[in-house]
């Protein structure tokens, strides 16, 4: 799965967790924090994405990333 597909999975999960956010606002250069995600929201978005992709990566390995694009890239690399 390429990073664009992973980005779309993340995008879907952001909307589930943050229902007031519209799809067009979610771009690879944004940080989850910029979208108003608190620490629990951020963990939930990542866990939901890992679950959708059937991936098991310790959360501690992926807490630091520059933006949503970098997160997609990191997960694509692990997949």
């Amino acid at each position: 799965m390429c990073k664009d597909e992973i980005f779309r999975v993340i995008q879907k999960n952001i909307i589930t967790v943050l229902p007031h956010i519209t799809q067009d606002v979610i771009t690879p250069d944004k940080e989850l924090k910029d979208l108003g995600a608190n620490s629990i929201d951020r963990s939930e978005i990542i866990l939901k994405t890992l679950e959708d992709l059937n991936l098991k990566i310790p959360l501690t390995k992926i807490v630091k990333f520059k933006n949503i694009g970098a997160l997609s890239e990191f997960i694509a690399h692990e997949k």
Binding site: I40, S43, L47, K48, E51, K56
Partner: peptide
């Protein structure tokens, strides 16, 4: 089946 995926929201 997968305790890793338990929502972090659970604790609240």
């Amino acid at each position: 089946k997968g305790p890793e995926y338990l929502t972090p929201r659970y604790a609240i």
